[in-house]
Design a protein around this nucleic acid. Structure first.
Lengths: 183, 183
DNA sequence: TCGTTGAGTCAACGACTGTTGAGCGAAATG
DNA sequence: CATTTCGCTCAACAGTCGTTGACTCAACGA
């Protein structure tokens, strides 16, 4: 039937485990996601998950590794659009890796550290290209605004934010971010 | 030595267990907080916790029961000040029951439901006294802004928000909320 | 003073968890 | 075809958890 070399099958299995884990971590968090559940959803023996990823924590690390935006400089207006677009709203859905990290960041220490890292870098990036005083603090508030909306929208799934076109949210949020962007 | 009636000691023990549980739930979340840990911190046998509260879930329910603001009507400016004040920033610290609920709201289904309830009522309250179109959506965004800042400040403990006088945060956030409050 | 109540403890059960080492069987290699 | 490699499974261990029932003993009421 399927003409797959051993190496190919092996890579496919490993990736299937990783994708399944990401999804489960994203929707249940670290503690409620068991190796056994990942294995079952990936149609694999639990021991295989361990063999490939070493431990549940390392599986989680691999699952939440997230691509960060390029390090180039940008003006405040572009950064606002980047915030509105990349962090959450415009696409209507965050990448599963980000969701997985966010889901566990309040209850799993390692996820919290990871989130602090990502958010810290974004704050620094935004703050560096912000004019006026207290740039870092204002950048932090801008970032937390986006985080709050993302949490309510994608993790808590509040009725009031459901089925709202991302454009509408972006349009309402823009003045808030601009107010913080200017002194 | 201590002149305490049996009923008094009993009430005191029960309350000590509840306070301890609240604190542990607030700083570790539902899953990482064990009945055994609560019992040890309260200097009591784990079985006693069960005897008083029935189950871990019911202990959690009792621990996160939070006082909601009175139902009276208010104008937009007052509501902004109430948001800035009560939800988190002005006092510099949220009540432990709120922290406990927030800590677990992304990973524990019952905590999520509880959070949706509290946030939903606040959104409705704010939205009802907001002029213009899309009042509920704008109220939801205002609420999520406060939630995001509270999360970053009190749960993630971001460096950029640490040791910042709550007044400063409130002053920077006010224009954001006003932008959403007006059409 | 004596029997009763009830606050609190002790030891254990059963379920579930992450993790491990031995082993199977098919694909790769010669 | 014979042998080795290795993807994968099976069964089990050790620990932790929520939860329970029997028990202890000091405070209480008559």
């Amino acid at each position: 039937m399927s003409e797959l070399s051993r190496a190919e099958r092996r890579q496919r299995t490993e990736r299937r485990i990783l994708d399944t884990a990401r999804e489960l971590f994203a929707q249940r968090g670290f503690e409620r996601t068991t190796i056994r559940a990942v294995a079952q959803a990936a149609e694999v023996d639990p021991a295989l998950v361990m063999q490939y990823y070493g431990s549940k924590q390392r599986l989680f690390d691999a699952a939440v590794r997230v691509a960060e935006p390029p390090a180039g400089e940008a003006g405040p207006e572009e950064l606002i659009e980047e915030l509105l677009g990349s962090l959450d709203v415009k696409l209507g859905e965050l990448p599963p890796a980000s969701l997985a990290m966010m889901r566990s960041m309040l209850t799993h220490p390692e996820a919290a550290a990871s989130a602090r890292g990502v958010l810290g870098r974004q704050i620094e990036r935004v703050g560096r290209s912000l004019p006026g005083e207290r740039a870092r603090l204002r950048a932090a508030l801008m970032t937390m605004i986006m985080l709050g909306v993302a949490v309510g929208h994608q993790l808590l799934e509040l009725d009031e934010l459901r089925d709202v076109p991302p454009e509408d949210i972006a349009r309402l949020l823009r003045p808030c971010l601009q107010a913080l962007s200017e002194g």
